[in-house]
């Protein structure tokens, strides 16, 4: 008979939905980076040879914005999958609970055909375990995607530092504008990391509780 698992610990369907909702902010930051990148490109064009060192930085910012938005979209999809599988799990574990209750009632009252309940309770437990695996696997994927965003933002932070150095070296007419672009990039990166890390911690804790 299948191993009995503890039912209904973490409400992954609620958790996933709240992660997705929280990450709407990350998407906004991605869009903000994209806007800043455009801004920087215009500046680079205007500054010409005076801001040559800044060109690769704007290219990176464009890429970064695109990657962030793409990742958030993937996260939204994965969060939906977690939610979907978690609701399915809710149904299977609910059915198992009910069937086990029936099993006990049938046993206590000496039902003639109680063995016919035992058979499908075992197979329902198998289904329940499989459904739970689906929830855990998709949660793991969700965590990986969030970690990818954190890494991306670490890179953004490093680039914003060199951007600041670069801005200081640029002609004084443009220096302040480039400085402001660098600061905004750092700001965005910080906000996103903070948001994502909070969600990561919650998901990792839920996953470890459910696996235990």
């Amino acid at each position: 008979m299948a191993k009995k698992i503890d039912l209904g610990k973490t409400k992954f369907h609620l958790l996933a939905v709240s992660v997705a909702a929280d990450l709407a902010l990350v998407k906004k930051q991605g869009e903000a980076i994209s806007l800043e990148a455009m801004n920087a490109k215009v500046l680079v064009a205007r500054a010409g040879v005076l801001a040559l060192g800044f060109r690769p930085i704007t290219d990176f910012m464009v890429q970064l914005a695109a990657s962030t938005i793409r990742l958030v979209q993937e996260i939204e999809k994965e969060a939906l999958a977690v939610s979907h599988h978690s609701v399915a799990r809710l149904r299977t574990s609910n059915a198992v609970q009910m069937a086990e209750k029936a099993q006990a009632l049938a046993k206590d009252s000496g039902a003639r055909h109680r063995a016919s309940i035992d058979g499908f309770v075992a197979s329902m437990l198998e289904t329940d375990i499989q459904t739970n695996e689906n929830v855990l696997n998709h949660t793991q994927k969700l965590i990986l995607l969030l970690e990818e965003i954190v890494e991306l933002m670490m890179a953004a932070s490093a680039v914003s530092s060199s951007a600041r150095v670069e801005s200081a070296a640029i002609d004084v007419r443009f220096s302040q504008s480039f400085q402001s672009v660098s600061n905004k990039l750092e700001q965005c990166s910080g906000t996103v990391r903070e948001k994502v890390k909070t969600n990561l911690a919650v998901l990792e804790k839920a996953l470890s509780v459910q696996r235990r």
Binding site: M98, A99, A102, L105, A106, A111, R112, H113, R114, S116
Partner: peptide
């Protein structure tokens, strides 16, 4: 209804195999 499912299942098993 949902609330009756478990007692129903057990009661039915007195008369026929569930299958």
């Amino acid at each position: 209804g949902i609330e009756l499912f478990a007692p129903m299942l057990a009661a039915v098993a007195h008369h026929v195999p569930i299958s």
